[in-house]
Every structure is written in C-alpha cells, then in structure tokens.
Computed example of a mutant assay.
Amino acid sequence: MIRVALDAMGGDLGPRIAFDGAIEILSRHEDVVITVYYSPHSGLDLPKPHKRLSLIACSDVIDGDEEIVLSLFRRRNSTLYQSLNALANRSSDVVVTLGNTGAMVALARHLLGVLRPKLYPALIRELYSNPLRCLVDLGANVHCPPSMLVGFAELGAAYVEALSDEIPKVGLLNVGVESSKGSAVIREANRLLASKVWPTYLGYAEGTELFEGEKNVIVCDGMVGNAVLKASEGLLSFMVNKFKKAEGVSSLFETFYQTERRHGACLVGVRGNLVKGHGRSDLPAMVGAIEYGIDIARANLYSAIETRLCNEALESGD
C-alpha cells in the first residue's frame, strides 16, 4: 500500500479540493490509502466514510503568507506539521500539500533531516515527463552561492536517473552561453560543475533551452526558477484563452496543458518524499499533485537519490 499524507489546508480554494481529490484518487488506485489533515473550523461537510480514507482534525493552520520564525517549529498541531511528522515517523510514504512553501521547506528540514550535510533541499519541476526534463530550483532557496547550485545539479541529475532511463545532462541557466556572461556566482558555479565527473555538465543554458535541446536538467537559483516557471504557466494560459475560438489550435494547447505533468513540484534533498502543489490548484490539479506523489512514493525517490549521492561520494573519494 502507498500511504499518502494530505495537508488539506494550504490551497486558496479550501479543504474541499483536498477532500474531493482524495476520493477521486481512491477510486483510481486500489493500493493507496490517504490520511487527510484538516481544520475542523473550516465549516465544510466531511466526505463520506471510506475504508482507505482517514481524517485527522488539527487545531492549527499555517497560512500561506506567514513568515518563517522560530515559533513555527513549536506549532505541532498544525496540519502541515502533522502531515510531515507522519512522514518522519514512517507512517506515510509521501506528503502532498498546497500550503506555504517556506514553511514546508523549513519544517521538512527540521523533521526529516537533509540527505547530506551542506546539501540544501531544492524544488524540482518537470517541464516534460517523456523524455524527462526538469528545472531546479523553484523557490526553496533564493540566495544561492556556487556550491548550492552545484548541489542542485546533483539533486536534479539523481532525480532524472531515479525516475527515467534518461542520462542527465546539466545546464546552468544564464543570460548567454559565452564564458564571460553572468554574475560571479554563476561563473564560479560553472567552474565547479565543469570540474566534476558526475553529473555530465554541458555548460550554460539560455532561456530558449528550457523546453528543448540536449540539456535536461536546468539549474538556477530559486528566485529565477520561480519567475521562469510562473511566466511559462502564465503564457500557456494566455495562449489557451487567446486561441479558444481557433479551430485545432486551442485543442493543441489544451492537450499539452492537461497531459504534461504540471501539477506540483517535488522537494528533494530531505529524507522523505514531498510534493508541493500550486496554491491556486483546482480539483484536476489537486488530483495531479496526489498522482505525482504516488509516483515518487512507488519509486521511493528520496532513498534512490540518497543512494546515488552516496555512491558518487564514494567513487569520488569525498
């Protein structure tokens, strides 16, 4: 059985999306059980009893706009804390949340621990699922020294190896491909990555290489990655709406929009499987985020990444 811990309180549309998403998932997967962590003060009717669905009422909710302060770690009755604690105690295999990204990252590091000292967790988003192509980081880290970007490259490469037959080929997102381009941080990260045997590093990547080209792991800091992702999603939505009345064109955009794995990002670098969905997720997006979580739980993703990083450290003598 795959055991999903679902934080119901993070999304803009309220816990009903999580309740309905859980019921839909259970109708599709006979080998999945879901525990939903919710606030009884939400005022919604609870879903009908289901033998593979558990509901746990929590007295606290971490809002999406809350700052990351020390008191966060004492809020043990919040839905996010409880769901992550279930993962830490190994009573669940994956956590899915639409909630506060900063709180999720901070609590995940606190409760689960990191895979390797000085390796910072990163959010990975799949740009394509077949062939697998991903962007790292999407906002878990904003101020990133060169060593952190190298760590993102390693996490992204291990992710690709764990979930596909693709050979990871890393590119460092920059304003140009010339060696003189970019900040001092980018140029130093370029030097460090070029000196490594693994992962395979192909140099700088420009924005035009995000969705096509040889590089299938695109690395950047969290602020750039988040801006790039949301701009891409906004453009796609704009194009879908713009061409709704154009025969054939609209259906092409909608097919891409609906079939590519776009519902959620995966937090890697901690000792557990986590999916962070968009706060504005509707029911299909909620279902897609849970499906994503089930996929990475089946692959035991965090364990596969940890094994790959350990093997690489042994081979390189680090």
Rank of each mutant, 00 (worst) to 15 (best):
M1Y: 08
L6W: 04
P15W: 09
P15E: 06
G21A: 07
I25C: 10
S27T: 10
E30Y: 12
V33G: 05
I34P: 05
P40E: 03
P40S: 06
L44W: 14
L44D: 10
L46K: 12
P47N: 09
D60H: 14
D60G: 03
G64I: 03
L72S: 03
S92K: 07
L98S: 13
N100F: 06
L107K: 02
A108E: 11
G113R: 09
Y120I: 14
L123M: 11
N130A: 14
N130V: 15
L138A: 13
N141Q: 12
V150S: 04
L155M: 08
L172S: 10
V177F: 08
E178M: 01
S180W: 14
S180E: 13
K181T: 00
V185C: 00
R187I: 00
E188N: 08
N190V: 13
L192Y: 07
A194Y: 03
P199M: 00
L202T: 01
Y204H: 03
Y204V: 09
Y204P: 01
V224W: 05
A227N: 09
S232Q: 08
S232D: 06
S237A: 12
M239L: 15
V240E: 00
K244V: 05
Y257K: 15
R262G: 11
C266T: 15
G272K: 00
N273K: 03
L283Q: 04
M286Y: 06
V287Q: 07
I294A: 05
I294S: 00
R298C: 09
R298T: 09
Y302K: 08
S316E: 14
